[in-house]
C-alpha cells in the first residue's frame, strides 16, 4: 500500500513539472514522468498482496493480476511514439523560431 502512495507522489511531481516548465523539452520530460508513474500505479494495483508470477504452475496461490501488465506493454509503446513525434516537431520549431520557449513561440500575432 505504501508503494501506491509513493507512485501517486511521483505523479504529483510530474503534474507540478508540467505546470511550471518554460520550454517544450521540460514539458515533454514531465509528461514522461507522469506516464511512467502511472505504469507503476498499475503494477502496484496488480500485485497488492499477491506476488506469485502469473505462469502456469501446479499450485496457484496468490498469483498477480495479469491484465494490467499486458495493458502497460501497450501503454509504454504509445508513450514512446508520442515522445518521438513531439521531439521531431520541436526540431522543426527550433529551425523556424530559433528558440524553444513557450512564451516566445505562442506570441501575439496581428493577423
Amino acid at each position: 500500500m505504501i508503494s501506491v502512495i509513493l507512485a501517486l507522489g511521483i505523479f504529483i511531481i510530474g503534474i507540478y513539472g508540467v505546470l511550471i516548465s518554460k520550454d517544450i523539452i521540460k514539458s515533454l520530460i514531465s509528461f514522461n514522468i507522469m506516464q511512467a508513474s502511472l505504469i507503476m500505479v498499475y503494477m502496484d494495483f496488480s500485485s497488492l498482496d499477491k506476488n506469485q508470477v502469473p505462469i502456469y504452475a501446479e499450485e496457484m496461490h496468490k498469483m498477480a493480476d495479469p491484465l494490467p501488465q499486458a495493458m502497460m506493454l501497450t501503454s509504454i509503446v504509445i508513450s514512446a511514439s508520442i515522445t518521438a513525434l513531439v521531439l521531431m516537431m520541436s526540431i522543426k520549431v527550433f529551425h523556424y523560431f530559433g528558440t524553444l520557449e513557450w512564451e516566445k513561440i505562442i506570441e501575439r500575432e496581428e493577423l
Binding site: I24, S27, L28, F31, I82, L85, V86, M89, S90, K92, V93, Y96, F97, I105, I106, E109
Partner: peptide, 11 residues
C-alpha cells in the same frame, strides 16, 4: 504557424 499549433495540440 502550423508547427506551433501542432505541438501545443499534441502535448
Amino acid at each position: 504557424y502550423s508547427l506551433r499549433a501542432g505541438v501545443y495540440y499534441l502535448l
